[in-house]
């Protein structure tokens, strides 16, 4: 069993893993009790497990623990809380941009990453940035509205 030093949400954390190839997702969820990132496919196809690594969106099911060492990892819990949500989280709440909410983690994290690089994205830019995040409930329109709202360019409801 080897130890790995991770930097998660600004905090140094030591985690044990019997397998250097263990995906970061399992360590976040089971060792650090950060349940915001969700297992959806384990294939990097759906985006439910998205976290930020050095500010870029990454699929935590595809990043091994050994590859995560020395990188800056941000999970959805590191952005804000129900009492004090991050701007993007507040926009999701204002737009009621979820149904079951299982994909919401990935939507929020991908939106945060988008807005860091593109503070005022067009709808098409938002769609492109979120295209790798799957939602089954059909909350897409609200997610796009939430991104626009977070960017300071809210759309009227039609």
């Amino acid at each position: 069993m080897a130890s790995y030093n991770l930097l998660v949400n600004g905090k140094r954390q030591s985690v044990e893993s019997w397998d250097p190839a263990q995906p970061l997702l399992y360590l976040l969820r089971n060792e650090l009790k950060l349940h915001g990132a969700k297992f959806g496919c384990g294939l990097g196809q759906c985006g439910s497990c998205t976290v930020l690594i050095d500010d870029s969106p990454a699929r935590a099911c595809q990043v091994t623990v050994s590859a995560a060492v020395g990188r800056r990892i941000t999970t959805i819990e590191g952005l804000g809380s129900p009492e004090k949500p991050h701007l993007v989280q507040a926009a999701f709440i204002a737009e009621q941009a979820a149904q079951c909410g299982y994909c919401t983690n990935g939507m929020v994290m991908s939106a945060v990453a988008l807005l860091r690089g593109t503070p005022r994205p067009s709808i098409d830019q938002s769609k492109a940035a979120l295209d790798g995040n799957l939602c089954r409930c059909g909350s897409h329109d609200r997610v796009l509205r939430a991104v626009q709202r977070a960017a300071g360019t809210p759309v009227e409801k039609s």
């Binding site: 950060l34 349940h35 915001g36 990132a37 969700k38 999970t75 959805i76 819990e77 952005l79 804000g80 809380s81 129900p82 949500p85 991050h86 989280q89 999701f92 709440i93 009621q96 941009a97 979820a98 909410g101 299982y102 919401t104 983690n105 929020v108």
Partner: peptide, 12 residues
């Protein structure tokens, strides 16, 4: 339920 879902705190 949405504030907890948008902040990763909702318990599934």
């Amino acid at each position: 339920d949405i504030p907890a879902k948008a902040t990763g705190r909702h318990v599934y």
